[in-house]
């Protein structure tokens, strides 16, 4: 069963009420030990793999050497036959037969090493997958435990301090009310400023034709009238 599947079974079951004991401490310890064991197995398999791969390469080189030797001997036998040395050629043929036997043997050894390399690689792959799975299992168990413990601490603390967790609607209403109050206060401050602040006074003065734009227009008219008088005087 998947890790999440197991966790779901635990959470659905009676352990749910128990909260923080939702995680079996023994199971977690066993997983942790298995992770350590699997990691050690991986290290061992990797060093073994290095040794076997070296031997595999050695045997490949040996096969090449024997093949070359067989070819050289065949050339020699051919040369002996060419020179009519039948007996010598037969002696070489015996040697070639021995070499072929060696080649067969070495090929078997090589195939054995190749098989071992494959097996060790599979072993490492499956051990690494196991480590990943257990690590995830432990992480999920630990995280669940931590969240339940945190919730327990928070509930206990709120219980102990005398305050209680408000229900959601009350909380929402309070926060909204506070926001509305703030908005109301800001609107009130603005209208107060309009009524009593500097702006209010300026508005009243302008309405009475005093200061600001009213004064400026009057001065412009005076200037124009003065120029007209000047022009008529010339």
């Amino acid at each position: 069963m998947s890790v999440i599947g197991k966790m779901l079974t635990l959470l659905r079951g009676s352990a749910r009420e128990l909260g923080e004991s939702v995680v079996d401490a023994n199971a977690t310890r066993i997983y942790e030990q298995e992770i350590i064991d699997a990691r050690n197995a991986i290290l061992k398999a990797k060093s073994e793999l290095t040794g076997v791969m070296a031997k595999e390469m050695q045997s490949a080189r040996e096969i090449e050497r024997i093949r070359a030797e067989a070819l050289r001997l065949e050339d020699l036998a051919l040369e002996a036959l060419g020179k009519g040395k039948e007996a010598l050629a037969e002696e070489v043929a015996v040697k070639i037969a021995e070499t072929e036997q060696q080649l067969e043997e070495q090929s078997r050894v090589h195939a054995d090493y190749a098989l071992q390399v494959g097996k060790l690689k599979d072993l490492i792959k499956s051990a690494e997958a196991k480590v990943r799975e257990h690590e995830r299992e432990v992480a999920i168990a630990r995280t669940t435990e931590s969240v339940y413990k945190a919730t327990r601490s928070i509930s206990d603390n709120i219980g102990a301090s005398g305050s209680k967790l408000l229900n959601a609607r009350e909380s929402l209403d309070r926060i909204k009310r506070r926001h509305e109050e703030l908005a109301d206060r800001m609107a009130a401050a603005e209208s107060l400023d309009k009524e009593t602040g500097t702006r209010a006074l300026e508005i009243k003065l302008a309405e009475a034709g005093i200061g600001g734009d009213a004064e400026r227009a009057r001065r412009v008219m005076e200037r124009i009238r003065a120029r007209k008088t000047d022009a008529e005087g010339q």
């Binding site: 992480a139 630990r142 931590s146 413990k149 945190a150 601490s153 408000l166 909380s171 309070r174």
Partner: peptide, 28 residues
């Protein structure tokens, strides 16, 4: 917040009814 795992309560002015709790485990 006292307890067996580290928990810190964050209270935000104006939203006191909805505190946030930060908690840490090995994984997250």
């Amino acid at each position: 917040i006292p307890g067996s795992v580290p928990v810190i309560q964050v209270v935000i002015g104006g939203r006191e009814e909805l505190p946030i709790f930060i908690t840490a485990s090995e994984a997250q």
